[in-house]
């Protein structure tokens, strides 16, 4: 079988039952994607296939030989971090870090969905979805964090995605940023 992962070509012959997750981890040494539940419930295995976020544990490798697969290793590397990776570090968006590769791959896909104008269950108007903390939480609900670093994960994604902080208008945010710039501490 032939695969394209993070722009690199691979030829391997895994068992027909191999998931994309097991292909990456067990056959190609790409161990960034994590196996949490192996049933599509936790999101730790999230990768991008043709730019769309999916659970790599719930899809067969054999079905994705003609696709572009991107794992966390392709999102960023040491010294060349993706903006979301930097934001997770800055906001301490984890404790143990096991869910983090899935969180970040999922957030990359999710922000692209926002850019395309896709609404979510949290959207009041499906034709004009706002992007705020409630939207981030809803859109990221397929990624569990057993350490419950959720507030910091939301902070990191909000910073990169340009969402409005909960309960604050754009004007209030600008005022807070100006106050911060003057050296006044505003939470």
């Amino acid at each position: 079988m032939h695969f394209t992962i993070n722009g690199q070509s691979y030829d391997v012959e895994p068992d027909i039952r191999t998931s994309v997750l097991d292909l990456c981890r067990e056959h190609l040494g790409l161990t960034g994607s994590k196996k949490g539940c192996d049933h599509g419930q936790c999101g730790a295995c999230t990768v991008l296939i043709n730019g769309r976020r999916v659970n790599s544990c719930l899809t067969l490798a054999v079905m994705h030989q003609d696709d572009e697969i991107t794992t966390i290793e392709g999102i960023g590397q040491p010294g060349n971090l993706h903006a979301l990776q930097e934001a997770f570090v800055r906001h301490d968006g984890y404790q143990c870090g096991y869910c983090t590769p899935g969180q970040i791959c999922s957030a990359v896909g999710m922000l692209d969905e926002v850019k395309k104008g896709w609404a979510s269950h949290a959207s009041g108007d499906l034709t004009d979805p706002k992007f705020d903390d409630a939207e981030i939480s809803e859109r990221m609900s397929g990624n569990l964090c057993r350490c419950a670093a959720y507030p910091n994960i939301v902070d990191a994604i909000r910073e990169v995605g340009g969402a409005e902080p909960a309960g604050r208008t754009a004007d209030e945010k600008d005022a807070a940023m100006e106050a911060n710039a003057r050296g006044e501490l505003v939470a």
């Binding site: 999101g43 609404a119 609900s141 397929g142 990624n143």
Partner: peptide
Amino acid sequence: YEVLSRALLAGASGQLRNK
């Protein structure tokens, strides 16, 4: 058919809905 969009968005997760 907003009821259909709403029902779909109420189900599963972003990853699962993509697949």
